[in-house]
Computed example of a mutant assay.
Amino acid sequence: MLLPLCLAACVTAQTEWVRSDTTMAQRDKDEKECGQIAARQALDESSSSHPLYPPWTGTGFNQGFPGSPFFGGNESPSYFARGPRQYELTDYCMRQRGYTLQSITPKPITPAPK
Rank of each mutant, 00 (worst) to 15 (best):
D91S: 08
S46W: 05
R82V: 08
R85N: 07
C6A: 13
R19C: 05
G60I: 03
R82L: 09
S49F: 11
I104Q: 03
F80K: 11
C10T: 04
S68T: 11
Q14Y: 02
P69C: 02
F65C: 10
T22G: 03
L101E: 13
E16S: 13
Q86P: 01
R19Q: 13
F70W: 15
A39L: 12
A8F: 06
L7E: 03
G73D: 06
Y53S: 14
Y92I: 00
A25N: 13
R95E: 09
S47T: 11
Q36R: 05
A112M: 08
T59L: 12
G35M: 06
H50Q: 15
P55V: 04
C34T: 01
C10R: 10
A39Y: 09
Q63E: 11
Q26R: 14
A42N: 00
T105V: 12
S49I: 07
F61I: 00
T59I: 02
S46R: 10
R19Y: 03
V11Q: 09
C6V: 09
S46H: 01
L52A: 11
T15P: 06
Y79V: 01
N62S: 10
R95P: 01
S49A: 15
T59N: 15
A9F: 03
F65I: 15
I37V: 14
T110M: 04
G35F: 02
R97P: 00
K32Q: 12
Q41D: 01
K32G: 05
P106K: 14
D21N: 14
D30Y: 02
E45M: 10
D21H: 02
M24N: 09
T15S: 12
M24T: 14
S76M: 14
G64Y: 04
K29V: 02
T90C: 04
L3P: 00
Y53P: 00
D30A: 13
C6S: 01
M94P: 00
G83R: 14
G72Y: 03
L89Y: 09
G35P: 05
Q41Y: 01
L89K: 07
F65T: 15
K114R: 12
R82D: 05
Q102V: 15
P108I: 00
E16D: 12
N74Q: 15
G67F: 06
K107E: 10
G72W: 08
K114V: 06
D21K: 05
P66A: 10
A81D: 14
D44S: 07
G60S: 03
G98S: 03
W17V: 07
P106H: 03
P111C: 07
P51I: 08
S76Y: 07
